[in-house]
């Protein structure tokens, strides 16, 4: 593919790896991840910030990557679902999602898990109801919500996220 002459340089640290990239101003972070970096774990479900499937962590905060123009995050650290597992071991949330069957088709799952990781580091959820509210930005059409909450609660109450 020929280089887009409108592309401008940007540097991102993606899943711990420094990447010197170029992107046109109208390229979103989500599309950069999926199309340029082939990190297709971050999903496109609406492309308008209305479903949460594209959730990634930027500088440790969960965000909708579909609404972020990639250039605006020059210099940032981005963690996607591909970067959550460490040394081949699944993140405690990933493990809990499998155990609690907190997924069905799996399409919203990476966004749910990245969102849950953000939720745990925010530390604002102290009970199930708060988890439910603060996870409501991630739609799941398969309807796995109750299992998603169980998976997150298991990790939250075990304090396992602190070690992760």
């Amino acid at each position: 593919m020929s280089e887009d002459p409108s592309a401008m340089p940007l540097q991102l640290t993606v899943n711990g790896e420094v990447r010197d990239l170029r992107a046109a101003p109208w390229v979103t972070l989500l599309d950069l991840l999926r199309e340029t970096l082939q990190l297709t774990g971050s999903k496109k479900g609406c492309d308008h910030g209305q479903c949460g499937a594209c959730t990634v962590l930027v500088d440790g905060r969960r965000v909708n990557s579909c609404l972020i123009l990639a250039l605006t995050r020059d210099g940032s650290e981005v963690t996607t679902i591909e970067g959550l597992a460490k040394d081949g071991a699944l993140h405690p949330l990933q493990q809990a999602f499998i155990e609690h069957d907190a997924l069905q088709c799996g399409y919203c799952t990476p966004g749910q898990i990245c969102s849950a990781a953000g939720l745990l580091s925010e530390g604002q959820a102290r009970c199930r109801e708060e988890v439910r509210e603060l996870m409501s930005g991630n739609l799941c059409r398969c309807g796995a919500y109750t299992h998603i909450v169980e998976a997150i609660e298991t990790v939250r109450l075990s304090g396992a996220e602190a070690a992760a």
């Binding site: 297709t40 774990g41 996607t80 679902i81 699944l90 499998i98 799996g106």
Partner: peptide, 17 residues
């Protein structure tokens, strides 16, 4: 547990696009 779960939670399950 679903046998495709580990692929899905790791973002390694590939969908049509």
């Amino acid at each position: 547990s679903r046998i495709d779960g580990s692929k899905k939670v790791a973002g390694r399950a590939l969908y049509a696009a």
